[in-house]
């Protein structure tokens, strides 16, 4: 079927039938959704086109059957397009690296509404040690 710029009526008919058939199937399949979904690694590699033919076969088959993962890949492509012009930020070297624990402390406080002491117990030990050292020095 060559593309002539005109709408072939048979093609249009089969498009319409296929459209309704696929959407009906998708609606029915969503009720019995698969439980085993693709991991983030596979989804990303598929969307970025980083898979070999060997790797892609089972992934393509999964995407045909799994509306959830297919929807994720669709959204990832849309995100990719939306952020296509975002330049990669280059690290500024003059700043002193902040401690990972400090960054996470703030986050944990926001999430749990408490201090991070319970999670980063090692910090507590450090604080106690520091206080003891200071005390010794004063003495």
């Amino acid at each position: 079927m060559e593309h002539t710029g005109k709408i072939n009526s048979e093609e249009l008919r089969i498009q319409g039938l296929l459209d309704r058939y696929l959407n009906r199937q998708a609606a029915a399949n969503s009720l019995s959704a698969q439980e085993n979904h693709l991991d983030e690694d596979s989804l990303t590699a598929f969307v970025e086109g980083n898979l070999s033919e060997r790797e892609s076969k089972p992934i393509v088959s999964h995407l045909v059957d799994c509306s959830f993962c297919r929807h994720v890949t669709t959204e990832l492509v849309r995100l990719d397009l939306a952020f296509a012009d975002t330049p990669a930020k280059v690290a500024v070297a003059e700043k002193q690296p902040s401690k990972v624990s400090e960054v996470l402390s703030g986050i944990l406080s926001r999430i749990f509404g408490t201090s991070d002491e319970a999670v980063f117990a090692h910090q507590e030990e450090e604080k106690v040690e520091k206080k003891e050292i200071e005390k010794d020095q004063k003495e």
């Binding site: 296929l18 459209d19 696929l22 959407n23 998708a26 598929f46 969307v47 970025e48 086109g49 980083n50 898979l51 070999s52 033919e53 892609s56 992934i59 393509v60 995407l63 045909v64 509306s67 297919r70 929807h71 890949t73 669709t74 492509v77 849309r78 990719d80 397009l81 296509a84």
Partner: peptide, 29 residues
């Protein structure tokens, strides 16, 4: 998969083209 992307996921042609931009894209290949 191509038909499902177009008909079920309502992907635009531009979006599908983006997905197959890489030469190693399974669909493109």
């Amino acid at each position: 998969l191509l038909l499902l992307y177009y008909h079920v996921e309502s992907m635009k042609l531009r979006e599908i083209a983006r997905m197959v931009e890489s030469q190693n894209s399974p669909l493109r290949d």
